[in-house]
Simulated assay, not measured.
Amino acid sequence: MTERKIYIAGHRGMVGSAVLQLLENKGYSNLITRSSDELDLRNQQAVDKFMREHQPDVVVLAAARVGGILANDRNPYPFLYENLMIESNVINAAHQCDVDQLVFLGSSCIYPKHADQPIKEEYLLTGSLEPTNQWYAIAKIAGIKLCEALNRQYNRNYVSLMPTNLYGPRDNFDLKTSHVVPAMIRKFYEAKVHGNEVVGLWGTGNPKREFLHVSDMAKAIVFSIEERIEGDLYNVGIGQDISIRELAYLIQKIVGHRGEIIWDTTKPDGTPRKLLDVSKIHSKGWEHECELEEGIRNTYGWYLENIDDLKEVKI
Results as ranks from 00 to 15, higher is better:
Tyr167Asn: 07
Gly68Val: 01
Ala18Val: 02
Arg170Phe: 15
Lys267Gly: 12
Asn92Trp: 03
Gly205Lys: 02
Ile238Arg: 08
Ala94Gly: 09
Met217Gln: 08
Met1Cys: 03
Lys280Ile: 04
Asp98Glu: 15
Asn83Val: 00
Glu293Ile: 10
Leu150Pro: 09
Gly301Lys: 12
Asp37Leu: 15
Ile91Gly: 04
Leu146His: 14
Ala115Pro: 01
Arg152Lys: 14
Asn133Trp: 13
Ile307Gln: 00
Gly143Pro: 03
Ile315Gln: 11
Leu201Ser: 02
Glu291Trp: 06
Gly16Trp: 01
Trp202Arg: 00
Ala115Leu: 04
Ser178Gly: 07
Phe104Lys: 01
Ala248Met: 00
Leu166Ser: 07
Gly106His: 06
Asn30Lys: 09
Asn25Ser: 13
Gly205Met: 02
Cys290Asn: 08
Ser224Leu: 06
Pro169Met: 06
Gln96Arg: 10
Ile315Leu: 15
Arg297Gly: 03
Gly127Thr: 02
Ala191Arg: 06
Asp174Pro: 03
Glu87His: 13
Glu87Thr: 12
Trp263Ser: 06
Gly231His: 08
Ile238Thr: 15
Cys147Ser: 00
Ser29Asp: 15
Ser17Gln: 12
Leu201Asn: 05
Leu22His: 11
Lys253Asp: 14
Gly231Thr: 04
Glu38Val: 01
Gly168Phe: 02
Trp202Cys: 03
Asn25Thr: 10
Lys267Tyr: 07
Tyr28Arg: 10
Arg12Trp: 00
Ser279His: 10
Tyr136Cys: 09
Ala139Leu: 07
Pro169Asn: 08
Cys147Trp: 00
Glu197Asp: 12
Tyr81Glu: 15
Gly301Met: 05
Arg34Asn: 11
Gly270Ile: 03
Ser29Cys: 15
Gly237Pro: 02
Lys192Tyr: 01
Asp100Arg: 14
Asp269Ile: 00
Gly285His: 03
Tyr300Cys: 00
Gly27Tyr: 03
Ser279Thr: 11
Lys314His: 13
Ile229Trp: 07
Asp309Asn: 15
Tyr303Pro: 09
Lys5Phe: 12
Ile261Tyr: 08
Ala71Asp: 11
Ala63Met: 05
Ile32Tyr: 11
Ile229Met: 10
Val66Ser: 03
Ile242Thr: 06
Glu305Trp: 04
Phe173Asp: 05
Val103Gly: 04
Asn172Val: 07
Tyr167Phe: 14
Leu276Gln: 04
Thr126Asp: 06
Pro112Asp: 09
Tyr111Ile: 07
Pro131Met: 01
Leu166Met: 11
Ala63Leu: 06
Arg12Leu: 04
Arg156Cys: 14
Ala220Leu: 12
Pro131Gln: 02
Leu250His: 06
Glu3Thr: 06
Tyr28Asn: 09
Ala191Asn: 05
Cys97Asp: 13
Met51Gly: 01
Ala142Cys: 14
Leu39Arg: 05
Cys97Thr: 11
Asp308Asn: 10
Glu287Lys: 14
Leu250Ile: 15
Asn298Leu: 12
Ile221Val: 14
Ile242Met: 09
Gly168Tyr: 07
Leu166Cys: 13
Gly256Cys: 12
Ile144Met: 15
Val214His: 07
Cys147Leu: 02
Pro163Arg: 07
Ile238Gln: 03
Asp57Tyr: 02
Phe50Thr: 05
His11Asn: 13
Thr164His: 08
Ala139Ile: 06
Leu247Cys: 04
Val19Gln: 07
Thr132Pro: 00
Ile110Gly: 08
Leu41Asp: 01
Gly10His: 08
Tyr167Thr: 02
Tyr28Gln: 14
Leu84Ala: 15
Ile144Ser: 00
Glu87Tyr: 12
Cys109Trp: 00
Ser160Met: 13
Glu87Leu: 09
Asn133Glu: 13
Met85Ile: 02
